[in-house]
Design a protein around this nucleic acid. Structure first.
Length: 579
DNA sequence: GTAGGGTTAG
């Protein structure tokens, strides 16, 4: 119309823009908006505010920023309500410094911020782990006359918890109390979740009491935080019990809580039961989400019923009417692990048919498949093509590849990949080093181990329990048990708890070398560290006991028997944490 | 009409 010389009217274009906004199509809205600008038509302020808000919510911060600048250029009122969504959108997608620049430029132009504007920046900086900047913003907020409120503090608490810094998070909680800014259920939920992740059950009990005393009602998020946290720590039975209790007590629970319940059932190999439960709660009015379906699909795959999982695809009533990329990846991942090429083809075909694009997870699964069937060159080609197509591999992609290469005896290739790509900020992490160090120790390549350790420290990455485990295993293999024990001590000094696997490694080495008294003494250490012997430990102890009996070491034999029997009794009781 | 929390795939 325009090219033929007709000028669309302002009203007609504004109508089209509003129509697209109403339909939620942001790409089309932006096209109309840009077209209007070319004709020097300025949409009305409420429409632009709506566009900014929708773009921001969709994470299209750059576009939102662009529209806002147009609004500014028009001399529109610089009101926090219109630009706060942009600040938040920028801060949520890792562009906190852009948000900061915007905040300052608006201030210069005379805009009046509010608490939410500063909170956005506090959110962005803490999310990116830029703690100095985050606390600086908190100070600036106060200097400008705004007291941080419960939301501001909750943001900080949340990201401290995400970094596992529960102590610092609890300090903030104390600070809130002193300033008369009462934490609410959201704050408590965040902390409860992280306490679960760290197995700090006593403190969970104490915090739940505080919540109760303050007469704050737990909500669906509370139940999800607790049970989801427990599930992540592998406490499936406890999580299950708690869910049953909450549901049977008639507490209001939403679909996310049910999703965790489905997950629990699937983890106990009861995905059929999870499916029946889903059907029965749907009849009672629960609206399932794709997460509900995907969780159950994953359960079927875990139990090796990929075909049934694929059949379920057609029976589910998907939210938004179609399975999403996670649904497909669930099946794809299972097929790749099995090396099931025909299933992989079926999934890929269906993805194409349904218009679902492969993402970084899908590609990582395929790389894993090629590694599994030994086609290493295809793996590396796929990695290259991912990068070429803008599907940036994540640290998980790289670590998976390194692990597979090392397991295929290709430490050299793994190390080459590591050197070539290891400067991206997110890669390598401690796990990457653990993989390479483990392989280097196994292959007896001491110089590489040393180099990796130096490199690791230079990146300010710290060895974790897995790193120590590798070293201890290597030392035990060489019979250097006392050095292994020294490393165990060093772990404790660095605040790391030796795992039962580490203890088992040392126990096994002691057994092989006939150091039975040392076994008894190590068992005492385990008790002191709060580390329970598991089935593997008990097996080693039983063997040691019978050897001692044959060699007529009655004293050691008796002590071992004592430990073994004590653990058998514990097995028959229910788990301690349930109470 | 602005801002914080939980659940799925590698």
């Amino acid at each position: 119309m325009w090219r033929s010389g007709f000028l669309p009217s302002f009203t007609s274009l504004l109508k089209i823009l509003k129509k697209w906004l109403g339909l939620g199509s942001l790409v089309d809205s932006m096209s109309v908006f840009e077209f209007m600008l070319r004709l020097e038509y300025f949409p009305t302020e409420p429409t632009l505010n709506l566009l900014i808000s929708m773009l921001s919510k969709a994470g299209m911060a750059r576009e939102a920023h662009f529209v806002f600048r147009v609004l500014l250029g028009k001399g529109c009122l610089k009101c926090a309500h219109s630009y706060n969504p942009i600040l938040w959108a920028l801060c949520k997608c890792g562009q906190s410094y852009t948000a900061l620049a915007l905040l300052y430029s608006l201030k210069k132009m005379g805009a009046v911020h509010n608490a939410a504007s500063y909170t956005a920046l506090v959110y962005g900086f803490s999310r990116e782990g830029l703690w100095e900047e985050a606390f600086c913003m908190l100070d600036e907020m106060e200097i400008d006359g705004y007291k941080p409120n419960v939301i501001t503090y909750t943001v900080i608490v949340k990201f401290l918890c995400d970094e596992g810094r529960i102590g610092d998070a609890l300090d903030i909680l104390g600070k809130m109390g002193k300033e008369g800014c009462d934490p609410d259920i959201v704050t408590y939920n965040v902390i409860l979740r992280e306490l679960c992740h760290q197995d700090r059950y006593v403190e969970i009990g104490e915090l739940l009491q505080v919540i109760d005393q303050k007469e704050i009602s737990p909500d669906s998020f509370t139940y999800a935080a607790l049970t989801g946290g427990l599930l992540k720590r592998g406490q499936v039975r406890v999580a299950n019990k708690l869910l049953l209790y909450v549901i049977s007590a008639g507490c209001t629970v939403d679909v996310a809580v049910y999703n965790i319940y489905f997950h629990c059932l699937c983890r106990e190999n009861k995905s059929g039961e999870a499916l029946s439960l889903l059907q029965s709660v749907v009849e009672k009015g629960l609206v399932p989400t794709n997460v509900s379906y995907n969780t159950i699909l994953n359960g079927f795959c875990r139990e090796d019923h990929i075909d049934e999982a694929l059949q379920l695809f057609d029976h589910f009533e998907w939210a938004n009417n179609s399975p999403d990329v996670v649904s497909f990846n669930t099946i794809l991942s299972a097929a790749c692990k099995q090396g099931n090429s025909s299933m992989i083809r079926r999934v890929l075909y269906r993805m194409e048919y349904e218009g679902v694009k492969l993402n970084v997870v899908s590609s990582t699964c395929l790389i894993q498949y090629f590694c599994t069937i030994g086609k290493i060159s295809e793996c590396l080609e796929l990695l290259e093509s991912m990068i070429h197509n803008g599907l940036n591999p994540t640290v998980v992609t790289f670590n998976m590849l390194l692990d597979k290469l090392c397991k295929n005896g290709l430490l050299g290739t793994a190390h080459r990949i590591f050197r070539e790509f290891g400067n991206t900020g997110y890669f390598p992490n401690t796990t990457s080093y653990n993989i390479l160090i483990h392989a280097s120790i196994r292959e007896g390549s001491d110089s590489l181990v040393e180099q990796l350790l130096r490199d690791m420290y230079s990146r300010r990455l710290k060895p974790d329990a897995v790193t120590y485990g590798s070293f201890i295993k290597g030392l035990c293999k060489e019979g250097k048990i006392s050095v292994a024990i020294q490393l165990r001590d060093q772990m404790l000094e660095n605040g790391l708890t030796p795992t039962v696997t580490i203890y088992n490694t040392i126990l096994a080495a002691m057994f092989q070398r006939g150091k039975f008294w040392d076994i008894v003494s190590l068992l005492k250490d385990m008790t002191m560290d709060g580390c329970e012997p598991n089935a593997v430990s008990i097996e080693i102890l039983k063997q040691a006991m019978s050897k001692c009996w044959m060699k007529r070491f009655p004293e050691v034999s008796k002590q071992l028997e004592f430990v073994i029997c004590g653990n058998c009794e514990k097995e028959t009781q229910t788990g301690g944490i349930t109470s």
